[in-house]
């Protein structure tokens, strides 16, 4: 039953990735202007060589099939602006950095959000609830890049007040380089998830089965984890897919501001320099990555909620 469910999701994912790749390809080829125009003047010979190298001399349909074929083989081509650098290498080199940051951010958002939401729900209408909800509204209304900038400003003030480097302002390296950007990156999602888990937890708290469990003498930690949290997590898990997407794109900005050598920063640079292959490669890569995440979330939702698993298996 479960296998069928998983296969179904995987097939859906594959089709979506193909669609993303196709859309990317045609979007990029609809760009007005000449992809090879750069500052330097080019002799016709050099130009012809470059065209041959990037396959630009072939008809569009052939380019498309080459592109899709290469994609299937996991080959994204060569960068336009950083010559001789393969897009695969760029991804391989910089994605782990983004992933580290993203995983840290997701972890912070998930744990913080669920915790804050649960606390707010348990103290409904009292000051912890009001505090959490106020922070949620504040965090949702402020763009990520502003939070990033402010965080940097605070770090600078902190460092100058302490007259030593308490926290690094930017860059990449040790643990201290990770957690501030990760917090900044996760903050919006954290706020969103706390609102969500607060609502879910409120519903759980007013449910019969919590009352029944308490009437059976279940209390404290086991009541919270086994009964309340487990049921309140369901709606949160469904939102993890969008949350990962938000953190991925949010990462572009945070990596830019904190000067972190992640894939997001390279993507933004590529966009600004119109580096076609890098844009296409990273877009498809990110698209595929997000699809994989969505499929994983679907599957894990099936694991948590037995109703989904069984109904999907039966249908």
């Amino acid at each position: 039953m479960m296998i069928k469910f998983v296969l179904h999701r995987l097939l859906w994912g594959a089709i979506t990735v193909w669609f993303i790749a196709t859309a990317t390809f045609f979007a990029m080829h609809a760009v007005p202007g000449d992809p090879l125009i750069q500052d330097k003047a080019m002799s016709p010979v050099v130009r012809a060589q470059l065209e041959a190298r990037y396959g630009l001399d072939k008809p569009l349909s052939q380019q498309y099939f080459t592109f899709i074929g290469n994609m299937i083989n996991g080959d994204f081509g060569i960068s336009f602006t950083q010559e001789n650098r393969r897009v695969n290498d760029i991804i391989r080199e910089h994605f782990p950095v983004s992933a580290t940051l993203g995983i840290a951010a997701i972890a912070i958002a998930l744990v913080g959000g669920v915790l804050a939401g649960s606390i707010a729900a348990h103290y409904r209408g009292q000051w912890p609830d009001k505090l959490v909800m106020f922070m949620v509204v504040a965090a949702i209304s402020v763009p990520g890049f502003v939070i990033a900038g402010l965080a940097q400003l605070i770090i600078v003030k902190l460092n100058s007040a302490a007259e030593s480097t308490v926290l690094p302002v930017a860059g990449w390296g040790g643990v201290n380089h990770v957690w501030v950007p990760a917090l900044v990156l996760g903050l919006g999602t954290l706020a969103y998830l706390s609102r969500l888990s607060r609502a879910a937890m409120l519903e759980v708290l007013s449910s019969d089965y919590i009352l029944a469990a308490r009437a059976r003498g279940i209390s404290g930690v086991s009541l919270f984890f086994r009964y309340q949290l487990r049921n309140a997590l369901l709606p949160v898990v469904t939102e993890l897919g969008p949350a990962v997407a938000a953190i991925t794109t949010g990462g572009f900005v945070v990596e830019l501001i904190f000067a972190i050598p992640g894939l997001g920063r390279y993507f933004v640079q590529a966009v600004q320099q119109l580096d076609y292959t890098v844009i296409m490669g990273t877009t498809v890569f990110y698209g595929a990555f997000l699809v994989v995440i969505v499929v994983l979330v679907d599957i894990s939702y099936g694991l948590i909620d037995p109703r989904i698993r069984l109904s999907a298996g039966r249908s």
Partner: peptide, 13 residues
Amino acid sequence: ALPFLLFMILLRI
């Protein structure tokens, strides 16, 4: 299914 911001950037280009 398209990643929204990525395609915003792409379409904008």
